[in-house]
């Protein structure tokens, strides 16, 4: 079984690395279809990453080494996160290192490094992006934690695989507490991954941009790592959503090698559906003003706290 666990672990990380750009490509494709545009290729994110890695890196004159380290740290954090989230199997050797709280901490660390790097060059755009990103973060991060706490209380554990095991065992349907949390989670997912209505990934308009403002000074391989990390982050968030709310098909501890064979197509189907769903949300909603974002996230936070209260009150 040990060997199988490690195989699952490696497979998960590799799959995340490989699937994250395609997932973004699929999301963009769905969005283009819904908006009656001709869709770009599914493989476009790959091609742009490849192109960026080939280019010569241009770094601003007064950038410090923090600026050059940050892309690697952010990327490393996202890869580690992909290894912790049970997207295919629940018996992951790496998982002892970090439970769900540490996972949120890992996302926070990536965010802080990214914001610091954005402030490093000292342009107006960088600091603006960093400030807005931290503004999104300080509400989204607690909301995500509260979402996780509901699931933790239900499963008596903060370890993600244990939560998934428990929720997948079918004893529990979507409890009322979890239903509130699911709404909160979707809002957090949109905000944290710079999607519409919080941020528009396709614009460089200074009035609205958050993520793009932060990476504006990056080029070539550093930019490629930042972009890849952002794609991984989206992938990871979607997988957290699966682990908490749609834990079906994940290879559970007692099933063995056959489980993995089911888990891979199951993940692919879920990802395809999630991409289409996200594209739909993005198509029917409009980008909101920056100062309205805290209201949006406060709603998410409130929903998450409500979920927790409902869970405690009903004792479910």
């Amino acid at each position: 079984m040990r060997a199988l666990d490690w195989i699952t672990q490696v497979l998960e990380v590799v799959a995340a690395l490989a699937a994250a750009p395609v997932f973004l490509g699929w999301l963009n494709q769905c969005r283009a279809w819904l908006q009656n545009r001709r869709a770009p290729s599914l493989w476009l994110p790959y091609r742009s990453l490849h192109k960026l890695f080939h280019k010569e890196a241009v770094i601003a004159d007064n950038a410090s080494s923090l600026f050059r380290i940050a892309p690697y740290v952010v990327f490393g954090a996202m890869v580690l996160a992909a290894g912790i989230i049970p997207s295919m199997g629940t018996r992951l050797p790496l998982v002892v290192a970090a439970d769900a709280i540490a996972l949120v901490g890992l996302f926070a660390a990536a965010r802080v490094f990214m914001s610091l790097a954005a402030m490093d060059v000292g342009t107006a755009f960088g600091t603006l992006g960093a400030r807005r990103e931290m503004m999104v973060g300080f509400l989204a991060e607690p909301a995500l934690l509260m979402v996780i706490f509901v699931a933790s209380l239900i499963s008596s554990s903060t370890a993600l695989p244990a939560i998934t095991e428990n929720l997948a065992s079918g004893r529990i349907g979507l409890s009322p507490g979890l239903a509130f949390s699911a709404v909160a989670f979707v809002l957090v997912l949109l905000a944290e991954n710079a999607r519409i209505p919080v941020d528009n990934p396709a614009t460089h308009l200074e009035l609205t941009m958050i993520h793009e403002a932060m990476v504006l000074e990056y080029s070539a391989r550093h930019l490629a790592l930042m972009e890849w990390a952002a794609q991984l982050k989206l992938f990871n968030y979607v997988c957290i959503g699966f682990a908490l709310f749609l834990p079906w098909g994940v290879a559970r501890a007692h099933i063995g090698p056959v489980g993995l064979l089911v888990a891979i197509p199951a993940l692919a189907v879920k990802l395809a559906a999630a991409g289409a769903g996200l594209a739909l949300i993005e198509t029917v909603s409009a980008k909101m003003r920056v100062m309205r974002i805290p209201e949006f996230l406060a709603t998410a936070f409130l929903f998450a706290v409500l979920g927790l209260l409902v869970h405690v009150l009903l004792g479910a």
Binding site: E141, P142, L145
Partner: peptide
């Protein structure tokens, strides 16, 4: 739960 919410909100703001 309210307390927990305040603690995590405080932690996130400390990051800010």
């Amino acid at each position: 739960p309210m307390g927990m919410a305040l603690v995590v909100l405080g932690a996130a703001l400390a990051g800010y």
